[in-house]
Design a protein around this nucleic acid. Structure first.
Lengths: 150, 150
DNA sequence: AATCAGTGTTAAGCACATAAACACTGAGGA
DNA sequence: TCCTCAGTGTTTATGTGCTTAACACTGATT
């Protein structure tokens, strides 16, 4: 490779590989319950967007309805959510959290907050221009990625 | 959330999610052959480190021997690699690429090079201090990640 | 009443990974 | 020489996570 920034580019791609590797193994446990990445992902989505039905969840998460349905079923079995149907609209599904589900969310958000605090401490230690560089950098990579996968 | 850098932190995490999402669907195709992420990953590793046996591949990739064995078997079936055993050392495995396997590597490296060129162009457009900020940023995140998952 | 678009579910199938039991090889010691 | 044993790669069962495609059901339109 003959790139001027070979070293930095390699560092970036090694970093991305590391993220991907860790994400697959990112299992959250609470009182005997094991929550896997896709489950946590869905839980967090629902927690932020209470009014989506399963189809809209699938669309917004970039998954198929089937995938969402299956994950919801598993979350139901684990006692995290309850799938309910409005008797006046038996077509769509509304998902609500059980008390345990709410505990899970709280616990997960707590650990997430810890991580965010670490990021915040680091970012706050930088100068405004430096943060701007990072912001632009991420934005630029996203544009490059989007141009690759239509 | 009450972080000073809430917006930037959210951008970072959305970016990471995007990367993870795309990686799962990153299928490389060449003349009818479909290569999946784990297969490409292994191919590229072997291409850089010809002398590893399967056990060492597993160690360096952070996988189990079983996983590597299975992926190698699939790559063999697809006509990408050949698993051979030295008659004077029937214990270990040596993996070599078929002509088609070499073609796959070449083609994949070519697309990778295109992506790297895009990165290079962008990074070259920055000032040296800006690149240093990015380098330090990634390094710092890696340290944070490592401190979380021992 | 019939149609139809939209809802969620299910079954089959594949990728990817682990754990654990396996079989085999080769080297060192009794 | 025989035995043990650490190290090799393989296989089976299991599980997550996803897609595709066929399904069944609901409710509104015609």
């Amino acid at each position: 490779m003959t790139f001027e920034n070979r070293e930095l580019i390699e560092q970036i791609f090694l970093f991305i590989n590391k993220i991907i590797f860790l994400e697959k193994r990112n299992i959250f446990q609470l009182r005997g319950a094991k929550l896997y990445p896709s489950e946590i992902h869905l839980i967090m989505f629902i927690n932020k967007d209470r009014d989506s039905n399963a189809t809209r969840m699938a669309e917004k998460l970039g998954l198929t309805k089937g995938a969402v349905s299956q994950t919801l079923t598993r979350l139901d079995k684990k006692g995290i959510v309850r799938k309910t149907k409005d008797p006046f609209n038996k077509n769509e599904l509304t998902v609500s959290f059980t008390p345990f589900g709410k505990e899970v969310i709280e616990a997960y958000l707590k650990t997430l907050k810890g991580i965010h605090e670490q990021f915040d401490r680091y970012l706050s230690s930088l100068r405004e221009e430096e943060r701007a560089v990072i912001k632009k950098f991420i934005g630029h990579i996203e544009i490059m990625i989007d141009s690759l996968s239509p």
